[in-house]
Amino acid sequence: MKKNLKRILLSGTGITMLLLLSGCVGRDASGNPSGIIWDFLGRPMTTAIDYFANNMGLGYGLGIILVTIIVRTVILPLNLQQSKKASYQSEKTAYLKPIFEPINERIKNAKTQEEKLAAQSELMAAQRENGVSVLGGIGCLPLLIQMPFISALYFAAREVPNSNFLGINLAERSLVLTAIIAVLYLLQSWLSLQSVAEEQKAQMRTTMYMMPLMMVMMSISLPASVALYWFVGGIFSIAQQLITTYLIRPKLREQVEKEFKENPPKAVKSTNRPKDVTPTSAGKPQTAIAGNRNRRNAGKQKRRH
């Protein structure tokens, strides 16, 4: 259940980002960007792009790239902190596999609802006792903090006037940039699998292609100026994944091993016996049928006496 929940949350992150991108900044009656986020973040970013493009003579393409680099550098510590939390929970889960795996097998092979509920209760108790987060360290606060910056930059890129960058018209869609973006985000997804246990890779491969596919669908329908912003974002995503995989995770693995050596893992068995609600052919729970049968038998015995 926990793995399914994590996959749902991770695969839904891209859709959530797209919805928030369109919701953080509003538009006035004329169709121009408006609202607090635009006034405090989007407009200054647009001014910065104009400054790099016109005052410094770098052009709007480099202007978008430079402003995107600045913004992504500012929010990079938040991204790394979130990756660290998720990786810490992942390493804990991997270390505690000998405890969790038998319980997960009982959940998978449960024949009745009572057995399944009991095993799930035991799993949750074992996770709680060993300090494992049910959500795997995935939190909403860092994403919510980033979204105003990303949303403002997204709309700032869309406001770029008609101009060219390396032969690409920034006001029109670019198949070349779309293809490059697809490769970048596919590489980022592939890198995210390298630190995952072998038995989990097969389960995660289906979600590996979701983000690249979404980025292709969005890039092919939007101006190249926005695709250029996503291109820089893809490079930052790869850099963040490399830092997480080869620098953060090894240290966290050592930390988890040390923590559990000092405080050995605890296997917990749930003492609660959930009511069996497995439906029968008559549509009634087994426990209810058994109770009715016992009452009928008791009535018959009284009549005999």
Rank of each mutant, 00 (worst) to 15 (best):
K2L: 06
K2M: 08
K3E: 06
R7M: 15
L10S: 05
T13L: 06
T13P: 00
I15T: 05
I15D: 01
L18M: 09
S22N: 13
G23Q: 11
C24H: 02
G26K: 00
G26S: 05
G26H: 00
A29K: 00
N32R: 06
N32G: 02
N32F: 02
S34N: 03
F40V: 14
P44C: 02
A53E: 14
G59M: 02
Y60F: 07
G61N: 05
G63I: 01
G63D: 03
L66Q: 07
I69E: 09
I70V: 15
V71Q: 10
I75C: 08
I75E: 11
I75V: 15
S87K: 09
S90H: 11
E91Y: 03
E91H: 04
A94N: 14
L96E: 08
L96V: 14
K97S: 12
P98A: 09
I99V: 13
F100S: 10
I103E: 08
I103H: 04
I103R: 02
I103Q: 12
I107Q: 05
Q113I: 15
A125K: 11
A126E: 12
V132A: 11
S133V: 07
L135V: 09
G137L: 11
C140M: 13
C140L: 15
P142N: 10
Q146T: 13
M147S: 07
L153C: 12
F155N: 07
A156T: 07
A157D: 03
R158L: 15
N162E: 15
N164F: 06
N164T: 13
N164I: 12
L166C: 08
G167I: 08
I168W: 01
L170P: 06
A171L: 02
V176M: 15
L177I: 08
I180S: 04
L184V: 07
Y185S: 10
L186R: 07
L187Q: 08
S189F: 00
S192G: 02
Q194D: 04
V196I: 15
Q203P: 01
Q203F: 04
T206G: 09
T207G: 13
M208R: 05
M210Q: 06
M210T: 07
M211I: 15
P212L: 10
P223Y: 00
A224M: 00
V226T: 14
A227R: 04
A227T: 12
A227H: 07
Y229N: 14
V232M: 01
G233R: 05
G234E: 07
G234K: 04
I238A: 01
Q240M: 09
Q241R: 11
I243N: 06
T244V: 09
T245G: 00
Y246I: 03
L247C: 10
L252F: 03
Q255R: 11
Q255K: 13
E262T: 06
P265F: 06
A267T: 12
T271L: 15
P274T: 08
T280Y: 00
G283D: 01
P285W: 11
Q286L: 14
A288C: 05
I289S: 00
G291Y: 05
G291V: 03
R293Y: 03
R295N: 10
G299E: 15
K302P: 11
